[in-house]
Simulated scan of single mutants.
Amino acid sequence: MTDRLSSLWQQRYRTPLPEALADNKVSQSAVFDSLLTHRSVRAYLPNALPEGTIEAAIAAAQSAATSSNLQCWTVIAVEDPVRRARLAALCGNQSHIATAPVFLVWVADLSRLRRIAQNEGETHEALDYTEAFLIAAIDTALAAQNAVSALEAAGLGTVYIGGLRNHPEEIAEKLALPEGCVGLFGLCVGYPDPAEPASVKPRLPQRAVLHRERYDFEAEAEAEIIAAYDALDDAFQKEQGLPSRRWSATMVRRIATRAGLHGRDTMRTSLKALGFPLK
């Protein structure tokens, strides 16, 4: 077990396994093992998923925490090839949406709560506020990650699709979403194609993301951490046969202008059009 954990840690961080983790109960669990093997799969076999797979994934999703038990999310499982192809076009022509046997659309859904209130003859003013949208978005993300963990533990591959937000109003129309719903992201699900294996991508070292007691920032130290990660990321790029790059420079280009949002700079307007006042 320790040898496998060391290998998984090395893939994720490109550093030796810390001694403190060698005998830690959390790091020794099967769940931890599965989580560390996560990778984004974009090449799928055409094989259909076993019966009950989606239902099992949703059971895992519904076992995630939900704020005040509001449960304000919905999933649309898209299996029809023609519909998946149309969604792929709206999501930036990502071909894996069309080739994966199932595409799950994760929806922040306040419409159900509105209908319940209306059926009770009550108002639903609180749903008009930004906090309600945040709750729906957070709940949806927590649920989706639970589903991903369950699917990957069963040997399936997944990849999140943020491109679903490129055209939120068109997506809503295609999926007949009621007012108070917005597709937050998609999720391809299927059996990974062994001919095009996905790899574990290194992440920032924990020194960059883990702080204790307070946000402990020191400019020179952070610059050194980022420079070291740039080197790791570049090495990964070369291993994958991809162009050399500096991760930090790539991220700066991504956030430099609104063009990096790929049309999502109008998201607030779209959300209001879809029934989220965001007061």
Rank of each mutant, 00 (worst) to 15 (best):
P192D: 10
A132K: 02
V75T: 11
A117D: 11
G180E: 07
P194Q: 05
P194G: 07
D23P: 00
S270W: 04
L242I: 01
L110S: 01
I58P: 01
S40Y: 01
L164K: 02
L45C: 08
L204Y: 11
A256G: 01
S270M: 05
E220C: 01
G275W: 08
A88I: 04
V105G: 01
Q11R: 11
L210N: 07
Q28N: 14
K238R: 15
A61H: 00
E122F: 05
F236D: 10
V82I: 14
M1C: 09
R12W: 06
P18M: 11
S111P: 08
V252Q: 14
L5K: 02
A172W: 06
E19Q: 15
Q10P: 00
G92Y: 07
F236E: 12
P18R: 11
G121E: 09
A57V: 13
S29I: 08
R253S: 15
E120G: 05
A195H: 07
L271G: 00
A231F: 00
A57M: 15
D109R: 02
H96A: 05
L242W: 13
L271I: 04
T37K: 14
L21R: 10
E170G: 00
N24L: 09
A88S: 15
L49N: 02
P197D: 05
E179R: 14
L274S: 06
I54V: 14
E222Q: 13
R112Q: 10
R42M: 07
E55Q: 15
I76H: 11
S63N: 11
Y13F: 15
W73E: 06
A153V: 09
R83L: 15
S244F: 02
L187C: 12
R115P: 00
A65G: 13
G92N: 09
A172Y: 06
L187N: 04
A20N: 11
A231T: 13
L175A: 08
N24H: 15
L210G: 00
